[in-house]
Amino acid sequence: MGVSGCGKTTVGERLGQELGLAFIDGDSLHPAENVAKMTAGTPLNDADRAPWLAAVGRELAGSPGGLVIACSALKRHYRDAIRAQAPEVFFVHLAGSREVLAARMEGRTGHFMPAGLLDSQLATLEKLGADELGVVLDISAPPKILVGAAVVRLEDQRAGQRRSGARR
Score class of each variant (00 low, 15 high):
P87I: 00
D156H: 10
R163V: 05
D46Q: 06
R76F: 07
R83M: 05
E155K: 03
A103I: 04
R108T: 13
L154K: 01
F91W: 02
G96W: 03
R158C: 05
H93W: 10
V89Q: 00
D131S: 15
P114C: 03
D80W: 03
P64E: 12
K75L: 04
A149P: 05
L101G: 03
G107W: 00
E132V: 08
D138T: 10
G107D: 07
L154G: 08
P114Q: 03
L101D: 01
D138N: 15
G110A: 12
A61K: 01
L133H: 13
M105T: 04
A115Y: 04
P51M: 04
S140H: 14
K127F: 13
G116W: 03
M113T: 14
D138F: 09
R104K: 09
A130F: 10
V151P: 04
L137R: 02
G62F: 12
M105I: 05
D119R: 08
I82A: 09
T124E: 14
I145Q: 14
A70M: 03
P51H: 06
L74N: 01
V152I: 07
V89M: 00
D131R: 11
S63Q: 06
F90P: 02
P114N: 05
A123H: 10
V152A: 10
A130S: 15
L101E: 00
P143V: 00
L74K: 00
D48A: 06
V136L: 02
A81P: 11
L101H: 06
Q85P: 08
D46F: 07
A102R: 12
E126L: 11
F90I: 00
R108K: 09
R58E: 15
S140G: 15
H111P: 13
G148P: 05
A86G: 10
R49F: 09
S63M: 02
D138I: 07
R98K: 13
K127E: 15
I145G: 03
R58P: 06
D138G: 10
G66C: 01
A103N: 14
G110H: 07
A103H: 12
C71Q: 05
S72H: 10
R162K: 13
F90G: 01
R76I: 05
S120N: 13
A50W: 09
S97A: 06
P64H: 11
A150S: 07
Q161T: 12
H77W: 08
G65K: 14
Q121G: 14
L122E: 06
R76V: 12
G65Q: 15
A123D: 13
A103V: 04
S63G: 05
E132F: 08
R108E: 12
P143T: 04
R79D: 06
L94C: 09
V100N: 00
A123V: 04
A95G: 10
E59I: 00
L125M: 14
L60N: 10
G96P: 13
Q161D: 15
S63T: 07
G110S: 08
A81L: 02
A123F: 06
E132S: 12
A54F: 00
A73H: 13
D119E: 15
A81W: 07
R83W: 09
I139F: 01
L74A: 06
H77E: 08
V56K: 02
V56Y: 03
F112H: 12
L53H: 08
H111S: 13
G129I: 01
P87N: 02
E126T: 12
